[in-house]
Computed example of a mutant assay.
Amino acid sequence: MTNTPPTLGDHIAGWNPEPTVETDRLDPAQATRLARTLDLPDTFADGDALPLPWHWIYFSEWPATAALGADGHPAEGHSLPPIPDRRRMFAGSRMTSTAPLRLGVRTEKRSAITNIAEKHGRTGDLLFVTVTTTYVQDGTTLLSEEQDLVYRSDSGHTTTFERPAAELAPATAAWTAEPAPAPPTLFRYSALTSNSHRIHYDLPYASEVEGYPDLVVHGPLLATYLAELARANNGGTSLRTFSFRLQRPLFAGDRFRVEGAPGDDGIVTLQVITGDGTVHVSGKGEF
């Protein structure tokens, strides 16, 4: 009789975490720290509007260091699927804002897992988990977001990633920028988002264990560059809706361009590219 190895679905059978509710006062000093990390001149005070998607720097999760796994992520957690040797990746997000979150205001974050799907990829079985979150101030929901997280069970196999082309084709988009996040940028963004994943600051781990050629630029940081490009070209006012999909990783030292263009239908198309147009992040939004 052949013993069939358990699938990821088998490991999470019966796993159904309850929704969570958290509260935080959106400290304007934290937003100012992110502005400095991004080399922006903004200084924030109570009552100011928080740009989209800067809400990621709030509601910090800060478990004991002893509670972290080998990759730097928490080893256990309320919303973490109970699969062996778990690795997590951020795949994308869709968000809608009816009005900006205001700094200095007590804010409620309500989160729930709304979809779970098992799929098969080139690195093995994958578990796609959608987390839906709403942000409430003074009894009114101002921001809703669906995040897609991907989990896999690390079998010890290391995937080798190659760096993108060093040169960029000439820019043709209406809006462009060329951020250059260095290791200190990645370290500071990790701290602001309470992200202790070692691929962003531990080069030996990133290269020898996970097969990356250098420190990995955070997917949410790349998405923030997209949203900031749109905000800079709209008189400092953020997008009202914003969605993005992470397609290929980027690494410290890679040259890339953030591009955007407004359409006649009111939709802003956005992307992060390298070389002759290889897309690493694709996005869109509306003002």
Rank of each mutant, 00 (worst) to 15 (best):
R255H: 07
A49F: 04
F251D: 13
E259W: 07
P164Y: 11
I267L: 15
D264G: 12
H11V: 04
V258C: 09
F251Y: 13
A35F: 15
L239D: 15
G72P: 01
P41S: 09
D24L: 03
A223W: 04
F187H: 10
D10K: 04
V272W: 02
G275A: 07
F256P: 14
T172Q: 10
P170R: 04
Q271P: 07
T158N: 00
L239W: 07
D265K: 08
A174K: 08
I12E: 04
H197P: 03
G104V: 08
L80H: 00
A166S: 09
T37D: 06
A99I: 06
A35D: 05
S238D: 13
S207P: 05
T237A: 15
R106F: 00
A182Q: 14
S155C: 08
T278D: 12
P183D: 10
S153L: 02
Y189W: 15
T241A: 12
I57T: 09
P41G: 11
Y58A: 03
M95I: 00
T96A: 14
R163V: 01
H55K: 03
Y212H: 15
G253H: 05
V150A: 04
I273C: 13
V268G: 05
V129G: 08
G77L: 01
V131C: 14
M95H: 02
D27P: 07
F90I: 10
T20Y: 06
Y201K: 05
I116N: 03
H197C: 08
A232P: 00
T176D: 09
E208L: 09
S60W: 12
L40I: 10
D214V: 04
R102K: 11
T32I: 06
S60D: 15
T20R: 13
E18C: 01
A173S: 13
F251R: 07
H200D: 00
V279N: 06
D154V: 00
H55I: 03
W54E: 05
S79N: 03
T7P: 03
D39A: 10
E208I: 01
D138S: 15
H120F: 14
